[in-house]
């Protein structure tokens, strides 16, 4: 009886035994993680020595210096304008690109693959790299930031717009095809209205993402408040840096809250 129970239990093991290849891959991945941590030089010793230094910086940050608040707010406004401008341009351009990239909506497979490739390129190259590229191309200042955010937004929104269109109900599309409607007519009448909630959600996320990105882009000379932050740190003016970090924090929180409220109301 006991041996019969034992046989039944072993017939259905708790865990699947990995194949030899899977086992080797798991061990290799683990080894790579350990190697990566040791190569980057992160250690508890260094962290322990760094904590007092961090405490020192934080001590020098408070109280924040509000003397240059007006100039900081002006830079913050430029940063937000850069984010909104780049984001809106990116959203506008990503819409036709998404149509070309959407399965079942794109005119043909070659166009679809090309459009998807372009969107993937825009998405996989980090926004900071795009900013460096545009700083070289159009010079220092917010214009480079706007272009970097625009390209980054196309990479993000293009993919999600295309997926939203692919997921729409095929029934209305078939109905309009049966009427003899044009491809553009079918997309604008049947696909876009059904994908609109996803478009709005993606667009609001893009604005939030662009606001966060626009702060960092200034560090490489693409305009906005990022350059102010870099200068403050370079001059060891930690009290001014604290003011800048706080206003950035407030801007990001406001944009996220407004985005969440709009999403709830519109969708």
């Amino acid at each position: 009886m006991t041996s019969a129970r034992f046989a039944a239990a072993t017939r259905y093991p708790r865990f699947e035994q990995p194949s030899a290849l899977a086992f080797i891959l798991w061990v290799s991945a683990l080894a790579f993680i350990v190697w990566s941590l040791s190569t980057t030089g992160l250690s508890f010793d260094r962290l322990a020595r760094g904590i007092p230094a961090m405490g020192g910086i934080l001590e020098r940050m408070f109280p924040p210096d509000l003397d240059r608040l007006d100039r900081i707010l002006a830079s913050l406004l430029v940063t937000f304008q850069m984010a909104v401008g780049g984001c809106v341009l990116g959203l506008i351009l990503s819409f036709p690109l998404a149509i070309l990239a959407a399965d079942g909506i794109s005119p043909n497979s070659i166009v679809r693959v090309a459009a998807r490739g372009l969107i993937a390129l825009f998405r996989t190259v980090p926004d900071l790299v795009w900013a460096l590229f545009f700083v070289i191309a159009v010079g220092l200042g917010p214009a480079a930031g706007v272009l970097a955010i625009m390209v980054d937004t196309i990479g993000y929104a293009g993919r999600f717009f295309a997926e939203a269109m692919e997921e729409t109900d095929k029934g209305p599309r078939e109905a309009l095809a049966a009427i003899g409607a044009s491809r553009l007519g079918t997309i604008m009448s049947a696909v876009v209205p059904n994908a609109m909630p996803n478009f709005i959600a993606t667009s609001l996320f893009c604005v939030e993402k662009a606001t966060r990105a626009s702060v960092v882009l200034g560090l490489v000379g693409a305009g906005g408040i990022g350059i102010e932050l870099k200068v403050a740190f370079d001059l060891f003016d930690y009290a001014t840096a604290a003011t800048i970090i706080l206003v950035i924090f407030m801007l990001v929180i406001i944009v996220e809250q407004v985005g969440s409220t709009l999403r709830r109301q519109i969708i």
Binding site: G171, P172, A177, I179, G180, S189, P193, M196
Partner: peptide
Amino acid sequence: RSRVGFVFQRHNLVLRL
């Protein structure tokens, strides 16, 4: 197709319009 009306089982309207 423009000369032929087609009524579907599942009406196939655009629901958000």
